[in-house]
Computed example of a mutant assay.
Amino acid sequence: MTSSDPRSPLAALFGLLCFVLVVGGVSGLLHEWLGWIHFMGFVRFLAPDGYEIYSYVIMIVLGLALGAAGRAVTRRGRG
């Protein structure tokens, strides 16, 4: 980040978590449905056995919510 970047560190953290959760959740779903390799294999440790599909969907939804929260923090900081 440069000094002219209006994003706060909290918004940047939310953006990073959004990316990790959404990409990890989509990767996990693709692995479960199509047998593809995990792009972000570490997220499988977040999914309990027998509840993988639900866990990956929750990861995607939580990631999108964190992304929206990060955008709200950025907008609040500007105005």
Results as ranks from 00 to 15, higher is better:
1 M>N: 13
1 M>L: 08
2 T>D: 09
3 S>P: 04
4 S>R: 15
5 D>Q: 13
6 P>E: 11
6 P>T: 05
7 R>T: 05
7 R>W: 11
7 R>F: 09
7 R>G: 03
8 S>W: 01
9 P>T: 09
9 P>V: 08
9 P>R: 12
9 P>K: 12
10 L>A: 15
10 L>I: 12
10 L>W: 10
10 L>R: 13
14 F>V: 01
15 G>I: 00
16 L>V: 13
17 L>W: 11
17 L>D: 04
18 C>P: 00
18 C>V: 02
18 C>I: 01
18 C>D: 07
19 F>M: 12
22 V>R: 01
23 V>G: 02
24 G>A: 09
25 G>W: 01
25 G>L: 03
25 G>F: 02
25 G>M: 04
26 V>M: 14
26 V>T: 14
27 S>C: 07
27 S>V: 04
27 S>P: 10
27 S>T: 15
28 G>Q: 06
28 G>D: 00
29 L>D: 00
29 L>F: 02
29 L>M: 07
29 L>Y: 02
30 L>H: 02
31 H>I: 00
31 H>W: 12
31 H>N: 15
32 E>S: 01
33 W>C: 01
33 W>K: 06
33 W>T: 05
34 L>P: 00
34 L>W: 12
34 L>Y: 11
34 L>A: 14
34 L>V: 11
35 G>Y: 05
35 G>Q: 08
35 G>F: 03
37 I>T: 11
37 I>D: 14
37 I>G: 10
37 I>Q: 12
38 H>I: 00
38 H>V: 01
39 F>N: 08
39 F>A: 15
39 F>D: 13
39 F>K: 07
40 M>N: 10
40 M>T: 10
40 M>D: 09
41 G>D: 14
41 G>R: 09
41 G>Q: 09
42 F>C: 11
43 V>K: 02
44 R>P: 00
44 R>K: 15
45 F>P: 00
46 L>E: 00
46 L>I: 06
47 A>C: 06
48 P>Q: 03
48 P>M: 05
48 P>A: 05
49 D>H: 11
49 D>F: 08
49 D>S: 13
50 G>N: 10
50 G>V: 09
50 G>I: 08
51 Y>T: 08
52 E>I: 00
53 I>W: 06
54 Y>S: 14
54 Y>F: 13
54 Y>L: 13
55 S>K: 08
55 S>T: 15
56 Y>R: 07
56 Y>K: 06
57 V>E: 01
57 V>A: 01
58 I>L: 12
59 M>S: 09
59 M>Q: 13
60 I>K: 03
61 V>E: 07
61 V>M: 13
63 G>P: 03
64 L>D: 02
65 A>C: 09
65 A>N: 01
65 A>G: 04
65 A>D: 03
66 L>M: 15
67 G>V: 09
67 G>S: 08
67 G>T: 06
67 G>I: 03
67 G>F: 04
69 A>Y: 05
69 A>N: 02
71 R>M: 04
71 R>E: 00
73 V>L: 14
73 V>I: 14
73 V>P: 00
73 V>T: 09
74 T>H: 14
75 R>M: 10
76 R>S: 14
77 G>D: 13
77 G>L: 09
77 G>N: 15
78 R>Y: 03
79 G>F: 10
79 G>A: 10
79 G>P: 05
79 G>N: 13
